Structure formats: structure tokens, C-alpha cells
Amino acid sequence: MEEWTVKVNHSAVKKEKPKTDQLEFGRVFTDHMFIMDYSVPLGWHDPRIVPYEPLTIDPSAMTFHYGQSVFEGLKAYYTPEGDIHLFRPEKNLQRLNRSNDRLCIPPIDEAFILQAIKQLVYLDKEWIPTAEGTSLYIRPFIISTEPFIGVAPSHQYKLIVILSPVGAYYKEGINPVKIAVENQYVRTVKGGTGEAKTGGNYAASLKAQELCAQKGFTQVLWLDGLEKKYIEEVGSMNVFFKINGKVYTPALNGSILEGVTRNSVIQMLQYWNIPVIEEKLAIDDLYQAYLDETLEEAFGTGTAAVISPIGQLSWENKDLYINEGKTGKISKALYDTLTGIQYGREKDPFDWIEKVTKKNTVKQ
């Protein structure tokens, strides 16, 4: 890790904090943000924490025109003892660098950025909500800022980290959601940017999401972009199915994002001696399992919602009601255990938790 000093410019005016029972996801932001710049002659430089405020960016900045940007999402949690926990933050920063590589963005120093995130979280720790199911969402992102109209990798970037106190991502919470299988639009294909966390993937999903919401569904289940046959993701989450006592999830194939929660769920299930199979899973086979009454549970996994049970799938005018539309035992156990570890209520046998203290932040 390189030796950097983070300059801190404290906000002179503290914003009013939202009431815990009125928290939405991603609507309110804390008093400060972290910024670091990149240029070809200097590399990454000038790390600083400043008051949260609008950015001033040239209209010709390349991020607006060619979409060269990446982001991550993780959370900070208050424990009953008053400790601050991060959940596997090193995995998010490793993935950020994989996204950087795919988008031709210079790599970051993962260890330093983790310390900078801890410093920012510690500075704004009063914003971490304490009510059940709430947390402080952490959004690191990188944008290309060189003022140039031309298709090429930028020579200038900004890395920014912002914080947002949040409640549940889905209004249903841990209750099952209704999902529509998407047959017309595709999210991405192997060789594209599906395994990177970049804004274009999400922009490509909006049309299908809008249409399914009009029909009363919470999200879409994406099929592969070539044959429209194999299950890939559900909305912006990885997806799992419990079939005849075994848990199946689509294998990573170059178009599926490798989720931190996905990885954690697989480890947790293996720890419980529940078989986990990562392979191609055809929608036809899933429907057959439903007809055979061996499809026992389905759920999505992601940082925002953690575990989102699926109670109904709609595919080609057929409705699949899974586990009678109720939250399954595995889904509930995973949610309770993962959130229990995150909030310090359960033991952490995997060493997943990073504590945020004044001592483990970077120099000022």
C-alpha cells in the first residue's frame, strides 16, 4: 500500500438526518465524501475528504459520452455493542479493480481505498442508522473526466465515495416478490460487460424493468442473450433455486456479475453441508422441476436486499407459485445468519467482518 495522507475539509454546516422510519434507499446522503484524482503524468493522487456537494465537470467529459465508469456497493452496520462493521469490503474492491480492467480504467490501491472508506465512515458515523434492517450504504465509483470527444480510454478520472443511510431496498423486505421472466430484452452477453459493475449494464435493464413493473412485478429474470434459454440473473441480483434438496445457481460465464453476497451464500450453504451446484440452468428444466413439485425455493442475493425470496415466477403466460408464495426455510436461514453476522448478532466463522475504528483509518 502506498503512503498517502488524506486531507480532510470538514463540513461547516451539518445536514438534518432523516427519521429512521422514513428511510428510503439511496435518497439521502451524508455530510462528507471522499475524492481522489487520476491523470496520466501523476497517477492516482490528491486523496481528500470534503463536504458533500455537486461536482463541477466539463460538459465534454468522456463519462457523459462513452460511459466509461464503474461502481461498487457495500454497507456499514452498527452492532448492539456500538461497533461499526463492514462486510467483506476487500471483495468489493477486488471486484472494482476487475471492473476497472474491463473498462480500461487504471487500477486502484485496494488497501488504501479500504482505509479511506473506513475514515469516511468513521467521520460520518452519526449517520449510521441503528433500527432493525437499516444500514449505511457505501457507494464508491469512478468516472472518466477528460474533456475530449473521441472514442478512447480517458487520461483523467475521479474516484468518489459517497454514503447514504438506507432502509430496505425492496418494500417487500424478506417477503417473497413476484418476478417476470424476460424474453424480449437482454441485459448483456458473454464477451460484453456483464461481469463488470458498470452503469451501462443497468441502463440496458431499465426498459424491461419498466414494462414488468407496469404488470405488477417487482423484477425480471434475465435469460442468456444468445439462446434465451439459460437463466442468468434476477434484476440486479444473482439467483438461486432449491430443487430436490440441492441448491442451484447459474455458473459464472462472462456475462454474470460475481456477487459478494452470492459468494457468501455459497460458502454458508457449504458450511451447512447443503449441496450447491453451479452450472447452466435452463428455464425449461426449472419449469419441469416445478411441474414435478421438486422446485422448493427460489431467491435472489445482493448487497442491497441481502436475500430476496421469490414467491412467483411468470413465464410464457404460466405462473409458477414457489413454496406457496411463502419465504422458504433456506432463504430465511440465510437472511438471518448473514444479517446476524453483519450486525454482530451472530458469530463470524469466516472472518468476513472488518471493524471501523479511529485507529484503522489513514493518516490525516
Rank of each mutant, 00 (worst) to 15 (best):
G311K: 08
D37N: 11
A333P: 04
H32A: 03
Y248E: 03
K242W: 03
I117E: 07
V356Q: 09
G254R: 10
A304M: 08
W315F: 12
I162K: 00
S39Q: 02
P275Q: 04
Y287S: 14
K190I: 11
S135C: 04
P106T: 06
V306R: 09
Q270A: 05
P106D: 09
L96F: 10
K178V: 08
V13S: 01
E53F: 00
P250H: 01
L42V: 11
G173N: 09
Y66L: 08
K207I: 07
L252C: 02
L226A: 10
Y137G: 00
A111E: 10
R48V: 02
L42P: 12
Y202H: 14
A152E: 14
I49S: 07
L163Q: 08
L55A: 11
V306S: 08
S205A: 10
Y335V: 02
R102D: 05
S39E: 11
V50I: 11
I142R: 13
L221C: 10
G173L: 06
I277P: 00
D58Q: 07
F34M: 09
P89I: 12
T145S: 02
K178R: 15
I105K: 13
A204W: 08
E126W: 04
I149D: 14
P129V: 06
Y157Q: 06
S60T: 13
G259H: 06
S11H: 03
E324P: 12
G340V: 08
L252I: 11
I307T: 01
G302N: 04
A251G: 05
P129R: 06
G173T: 06
Q209F: 03
P275T: 03
D46I: 09
I138M: 09
L313T: 01
I143S: 05
R98Y: 10
V186C: 15
P80W: 06
A333R: 09
K359G: 12
K332I: 00
D46K: 14
I174S: 14
E232T: 07
L136Q: 00
A289H: 13
I49V: 11
E297N: 06
K158C: 10
R139G: 10
F71N: 02
V260Q: 07
